[in-house]
Amino acid sequence: MMSEKAHFLLERNAFGRLRFTDARGQVCEDAVPVRAFPIAAPDQGIALMSPAGRELAWLDDLADLPPPLRQLIEEELAGREFMPEIQRIRQVSSYATPCTWKVETDRGATTLMLKSEEDIRRLSHCTLLIADAHGVHFLIRDLQQLDRTSRRLLDHFL
């Protein structure tokens, strides 16, 4: 799909990976979209990168792209990024760490192991990033949107 504004072609190759072609016809196989601000502004500031880490193109806002090109980039980002959003904390095994949390996320129910309180990072007044013992990062986008029980359980760790 050629972007009128960006002057490049982006398509899937035979292996399902992104092929980037710039306005001069130079081709880069296995291009990778990378968000500059994945939590604060997920649809703004997207770099298309070569496998060697060289920036091929900068996209200010996904909304400015034609729908087929935007969908291609969003599909690729979704395949690379895995950050479930916690919607409810059902149970914690202990208020001391390490402990096991049973949570509901936007991707279903799961269990995570919290090694220490330091694995809960405050990104803003209402946004938290929680790293579990296996390196999976869970996002709480807005503390105020959690139910009362979830906030009460979480308060023990903050």
Rank of each mutant, 00 (worst) to 15 (best):
L154A: 00
R107Q: 15
A57Y: 01
D60R: 00
A131I: 00
P42T: 08
S94L: 08
F138E: 02
N13W: 09
C28T: 10
M1W: 10
L123M: 05
D43T: 13
F20E: 03
F15G: 04
F157C: 04
D147I: 13
E11M: 10
H134W: 09
R151G: 03
S50R: 02
E104D: 13
E85L: 09
L65D: 09
L77Q: 00
R80G: 01
L65C: 12
E118C: 12
H134N: 12
A36S: 07
A47V: 05
L128M: 07
H125R: 04
Q26E: 09
S3L: 13
L123T: 04
K115M: 11
L143C: 09
R121S: 11
I120F: 04
Q91H: 12
D64T: 14
E75D: 15
T127V: 07
W101G: 04
L143W: 05
P42V: 07
L112W: 03
C99R: 05
L18T: 00
S150N: 13
D155A: 14
Q144D: 12
A31W: 01
V92I: 15
R17P: 07
R152C: 08
T149E: 11
Q91R: 15
S50F: 04
R90G: 12
A133W: 02
S124T: 05
L62M: 04
T127G: 06
D30F: 04
R35T: 01
D64A: 15
A31S: 09
L154G: 02
L9K: 08
V27C: 02
L18M: 01
A63F: 07
Q144C: 14
R17T: 06
I130P: 02
V136A: 02
R151F: 05
I39K: 01
G45S: 08
